[in-house]
Design a protein around this nucleic acid. Structure first.
Lengths: 132, 132
DNA sequence: CGTGGCAACGATAATGATTGTCAAAAACGC
DNA sequence: GCGTTTTTGACAATCATTATCGTTGCCACG
């Protein structure tokens, strides 16, 4: 029972989910992704999709967004910390980085004695190509 | 049918919810608030609590937070736009204002042509009195 | 003061995403 | 190849929130 093994096995399903995310643009729900895999003929259970997405999110390889609609959305993102500017009509998303915001959040938290700080930030708007 | 009437009626239940929120510190879920009202002998339906909270939130009189736990939390907040610094252990919350962040978000959105901009920001950490 | 319209109420059922369960299958190390 | 352990996946359970729809009470006007 050594503690060495990460014990993360490389399965067909995991590869399929990861690969699919690699090709996709924008955000998709777990159920979306599951449906797409099915269409491709990949035989993957919905439960597994959820589990895989959670794992990838924990590992920091994908990003999770929780829009007011209540459905979790996942996306393969560029590395590093960043935020999203989302069109509330068509869903088009732009990644934005805000170093100033990061440091501001850390500073404010520290001022109040909070440790181990993280934060979530999302910007919503109507993108220029969408009818109002 | 002039356009004057807000058509928002002043009911016992609405007052009760509003009053309760006025006394409470911190965030509480809709179901929490409903249970408290029941304990007090106020006869208010759960549906009405949800509706009232939504109404108050729309009117900007209370704040909504959607923590990863999946339960919406409501709180009577100071006026104006601000954000929250929440202890992920004990839930203690501090209101923080960040004018710089507000303008940054608006500016970034505008740069990408996004209109009608809003945003959500929450900071999580471990507060000084909580064991790590 | 009485009445009518209309919004709010509220009990219940419906919704729907996510999580738990557990036997069967697959992957990795040797 | 073989055994062990993780992973899978179909299905059921959970649970907050929303829709439904008949009833109730507020409000304005006569």
């Amino acid at each position: 029972m050594s503690e060495s093994g990460a014990a993360v096995r490389n399965t067909r399903q995991r590869s399929a989910v990861s690969a699919l995310l690699g090709e996709m643009e924008g955000f998709h729900s777990a159920q979306d992704l599951h449906a797409m895999l099915r269409q491709r003929g990949e035989r993957v259970g919905l439960t597994t999709v959820y589990r895989t997405l959670q794992g990838l999110a924990d590992a920091g390889e994908i990003d999770v967004m929780r829009p007011p609609g209540g459905e979790h959305l996942y996306r393969r993102c560029s590395e590093g910390h960043h935020h999203h500017l989302v069109c509330r009509v068509c869903g088009r998303t732009v990644e934005v980085a805000g170093p100033a915001v990061e440091s501001w959040a850390d500073r404010v938290a520290a001022q109040h004695g909070y440790a181990d700080v993280s934060h979530t930030l999302e910007i919503f708007g109507t993108c220029p190509t969408c009818p109002r």
